[in-house]
C-alpha cells in the first residue's frame, strides 16, 4: 500500500478546472518531482494534499486513511504533513527558534525545553546553529527557506511537500537549500516537490511527473522523462526550459 494515494482529484476555481482527474501514488521513502509550466496545477495539487484547498472530486489517502473525507480532523492530518512554500512564510514576530518550536510545543505538547533542544539540534545539523535567536528578517532568503524546512520537519511529518522552494532565491542560494533536500532524501523522507530546477529533479527524483493544463500527462523515471519523453508536450516543455537556460 502506498503512503500517499491521490485518486482522480479535480479542483476548479470559478468553474475553471485547474486539476483534471489527477492520479498519483507515492511510496514511502520515495521522492516524486512535479514539473510543468506555471499554472499547470503543481502548487494546487500540493495545497490539496495539505488540505489548504478542498478537492472538488476524487479522494486523497494518507497511510490508508482518507484525508479528504468531510468529517476528517483537518488539524490532526496537517500535523502528519509538512509543507514548505515558495515564499518561506516564516512568522516575522518570532525568533528562528520560536518559529520552529511553535508547533511542537502547542500542537504536539512537547515540553518547551525538549522542543528547543530538538530545534537547536536540527539547526546545527543544517548549519544554522548561530541563527537560533535571530529574527527572520535578519536572514538571507536561503537561510529563511532552510529554517522553513526545519520548521516543517520539527512536527515529524510522514511526508514533506515542497512547493517551488527555490524559485524565490538568488541562484547562488539555491544550492544550500537543495543540500537540505538531498540530506532529507538520504534520511528516507518521503517527499513530493514541485520544481523548476530540472537538473535537481533529475538527480533527486525516483519518479518525475509532467503536469500540463491540470492533467498528469506523463510519468516515469528521471531518465525516461528527461531523455526519451513519449509525449509531444513534454518534449516541447523540456526544450523550452533548456533554451531559456542557455540564454
Amino acid at each position: 500500500m502506498s503512503l500517499l494515494t491521490i485518486d482522480g482529484v479535480w479542483k476548479a476555481y470559478h468553474q475553471h478546472p485547474v486539476l483534471r482527474g489527477i492520479d498519483l501514488e507515492v511510496e514511502a521513502h520515495q521522492v516524486v518531482c512535479l514539473i510543468g509550466a506555471s499554472g499547470s496545477g503543481k502548487s494546487t495539487l500540493l495545497r490539496c494534499v495539505n488540505l489548504l484547498e478542498t478537492v472538488d472530486d476524487g479522494a486523497i489517502h494518507l497511510d490508508g486513511a482518507e484525508i479528504t473525507a468531510v468529517d476528517a480532523d483537518q488539524d490532526a492530518i496537517r500535523q502528519q504533513i509538512g509543507i514548505v512554500f515558495q515564499s518561506y512564510n516564516l512568522f516575522p514576530h518570532m525568533s528562528v527558534l520560536d518559529n520552529i518550536t511553535l508547533a511542537p510545543t502547542r500542537v504536539h505538547k512537547v515540553p518547551r525545553k525538549q522542543a528547543a533542544e530538538q530545534a537547536r539540534e536540527l539547526l546545527g545539523r543544517f548549519g544554522l546553529a548561530e541563527k537560533a535567536d535571530e529574527y527572520p528578517d535578519r536572514l538571507s532568503g536561503g537561510q529563511q527557506q532552510r529554517v522553513a524546512i526545519i520548521r516543517a520537519l520539527a512536527g515529524r511529518p510522514k511526508v514533506m511537500l515542497l512547493d517551488e522552494i527555490t524559485s524565490a532565491l538568488d541562484p547562488e542560494l539555491v544550492t544550500e537549500v537543495m543540500g537540505i533536500v538531498r540530506e532529507l532524501k538520504d534520511g528516507g523522507m518521503t517527499m513530493v516537490m514541485a520544481t523548476h530546477e530540472m537538473g535537481f529533479a533529475r538527480e533527486i527524483a525516483d519518479t518525475v511527473c509532467f503536469l500540463d493544463g491540470g492533467v498528469l500527462l506523463e510519468r516515469g523515471t528521471p531518465e525516461q522523462i528527461f531523455s526519451e519523453p513519449v509525449e509531444e508536450r513534454t518534449r516541447d516543455f523540456l526544450r523550452r526550459v533548456l533554451e531559456s537556460r542557455r540564454m
Binding site: N50, D75, R78, I81, S87, L90, L102, A103, V107
Partner: peptide, 20 residues
C-alpha cells in the same frame, strides 16, 4: 500566507489567531 503556514503546521484556528 501567514495563516496558511500556521494551519499547515497543524495549529487550530484559535491557536493560529493567538500565536500568529
Amino acid at each position: 500566507s501567514q495563516r496558511a503556514a500556521a494551519r499547515s503546521l497543524g495549529l487550530s484556528h484559535l491557536q493560529t489567531m493567538r500565536f500568529v
